[in-house]
């Protein structure tokens, strides 16, 4: 092989490629900031899927019927799978899963704040599937067109698999609303608690989002926080009304001129409080993950040693 001089395209070529809706692939030249920005966003997304196993996983052993139990297991399992796809996408940027997990544990890397709320009743499983997954999907559908190839492909796969998640959640809510007064109250209480955190999932308003402008230019993000949030509200309000749930927002009303729902002010102080580590379950979520990782260390180590032994004995034979 002759050593050719690599023609490194500069930032201009890079941006031109993005502007032309071409995907960036792992071995392409990319600005270091683009790489870091992607690592931050994709790994945060991966961590969210993995930490997201917990609030729902809590109810696997308590699900009210065998069918619900199987559905919930399949859903939580999908979340682990989605975390895996996303870690793999992040790894193409030159960072290992081990390093990513380390960043999660040290707090250097965040996950979706919504998972710091507890899942207190069975209705919460309905609310999470319906609201949290719907919110996630609104965001993820837009990310199927993100500029980084491996991220976009992971999103396509994830969106395909997630379609059942929001439906099963809504189905739980619907079943509760068709049930006894106790069940309807349980469903309404869950909506009351999950509504605002779901709106917060889309992040700060466009004007205040630290990463938005650059991410939009690089097409890492395709639609703005407020834009996605509005779409979510428009969908969810209608879905709530269809089964007799009341959205806990006195300012909510349809705006004919805009063709959208107007909604009340989000409590950003609460958002800040939870994201900075002081939500109801931040400590438990992280402790749970650290513990599982620590308790699995001897298994991972044993695998590596076993593999090395096998390789050696194969070499002996050969």
């Amino acid at each position: 092989m002759d050593k050719r001089v690599a023609l490194v395209p500069g930032e201009q070529t890079f941006q031109a490629r993005i502007d032309a809706e071409e995907k960036i692939e792992p071995k392409d030249w990319m600005p270091e900031k683009y790489r870091q920005n992607l690592i931050r966003q994709i790994s945060q997304h991966a961590h969210s899927e993995v930490i997201g196993e917990q609030p729902e996983g809590n109810w696997i052993t308590r699900a009210p019927s065998l069918e619900r139990k199987a559905i919930l297991m399949a859903k939580v399992q999908d979340e682990a799978g989605h975390g895996l796809y996303l870690y793999a996408a992040t790894e193409t940027l030159g960072i290992t899963r081990e390093e990513l997990i380390d960043r999660l544990h040290t707090g250097a890397s965040k996950y979706a704040s919504i998972f710091n709320y507890p899942s207190l009743t069975w209705a919460d499983i309905g609310a999470i599937g319906w609201l949290v997954d719907s919110a996630a999907i609104v965001n993820q559908v837009s990310l199927q067109n993100t500029s980084y190839g491996p991220y976009a492909r992971a999103m396509v796969r994830i969106c395909k698999e997630e379609s059942f998640h929001q439906r099963q959640g809504y189905n739980i809510m619907m079943t509760l609303m068709n049930g006894s007064q106790v069940q309807r109250d349980m469903a309404q209480d869950a909506l009351d608690r999950w509504w605002w955190p779901s709106l917060m999932m889309f992040g700060p308003h466009d004007g205040e989002s630290a990463h938005s402008a650059q991410s939009m230019k690089w097409k890492i993000k395709r639609r703005s926080n407020d834009d996605l949030r509005q779409q979510f509200v428009d969908q969810a309000v209608q879905q709530a009304e269809a089964i007799g749930l009341v959205v806990p927002d006195p300012d909510l009303q349809w705006d004919d001129a805009r063709g959208h729902y107007d909604f009340g002010a989000i409590d950003w102080e609460e958002f800040e409080r939870v994201i900075s580590g002081n939500g109801p379950c931040n400590r438990q979520r992280l402790a749970h993950h650290k513990r599982a990782h620590r308790e699995g260390a001897w298994v991972r180590e044993a695998m590596a040693v076993h593999e090395a032994k096998q390789r050696l004995s194969n070499e002996d034979v050969a």
Partner: peptide
Amino acid sequence: MADQMQLY
């Protein structure tokens, strides 16, 4: 790292 698995 001892417990670094391989990528497939």
